[in-house]
Amino acid sequence: MRYEFRVTGDVSRLLSEAFPELRTEPARRETLFFGTVSDEAHLYGLLARFQDLGLRVEEMRRLPE
């Protein structure tokens, strides 16, 4: 399953590199992370990692395959 996470603010490389399994794309005052999430455990792991790094998830959605 593919997911997209919309995170507040510009995320520097130092932080985005902590998500090697996701690609990032800057948007206006936001950063998009997207990629394949292997399962539910991975999804919650990603959310915890965002929180660990002080990133705020504005929106999260599943992308059509």
């Binding site: 603010g9 520097s12 932080l15 950063t31 002080g54």
Partner: peptide, 12 residues
């Protein structure tokens, strides 16, 4: 004035 996420900015 930075648009960066606070944590990333400060960590760097």
């Amino acid at each position: 004035s930075s648009e960066q996420v606070v944590s990333g900015y400060l960590l760097a």
